[in-house]
Amino acid sequence: MNRREDIVKELQDAAPILAAYKATESLPAVPENYFAGLEDSTMAFVVAEGGQWTATSAVQVPEKYFEQLEDAVMANIKAQEKAGTSGKTVRLSIGYTLFARMAAAAVLAGILVLTIFSDRTALPVSDCQDGIACLTQEEIYNYMQQNSHEFGVEQIQETVAPALEQTTTAIATEEIQDYLEQEQLYLELDDASTDIF
């Protein structure tokens, strides 16, 4: 029994009309000489659309890339070792990064408001003579606010913690709300994720 007979037999019980159709089946009509010209027309089409093939057309690599790759990789490894950055860097997901940035924005906004409501209590000032230890907390805050993308949430929290401890915390929520409305100092989501950071 050939395959066509198998198929007709398979149909006879479930679909007798379809089985009868199968017996009279013929190939669809095709324009005259269609197949005779198909090879050339297809070849013309694929070359026009797909381009002429070259040995490197599948993946394009810059000239002399592989000749220079070994030296470039080794130089990169040495530079990494010299910088002492042998630890693996794990990039945070976008969602977490956005959350972290917004948390940092909230912390900074909070300290700003609290500082103002505490009659602008002076930030601790270092009495050193030179070097980075001479930076005031205010300078550090300003720098962190302007370059907050370089800092993690924990770093920001650690930095603002001393100021929070010295700040009057007995501020009613309503007072904060009023102040924000007066100063139009409200943060929107887009601001927090783009403008501020």
């Binding site: 669809p28 009509a29 095709v30 197949f35 198909l38 297809t42 797909g50």
Partner: peptide, 30 residues
């Protein structure tokens, strides 16, 4: 080409549609 043409021809009513499908098929194959 003929076997593939008759296969795709069953999906559509018109030769022109089958030809379009076939040309795109061969482009992908290429």
């Amino acid at each position: 080409q003929e076997r593939l043409y008759y296969h795709v021809r069953r999906y559509v009513h018109h030769h022109e549609d089958a030809n379009d499908i076939l040309q795109n098929t061969f482009l992908k194959i290429w």
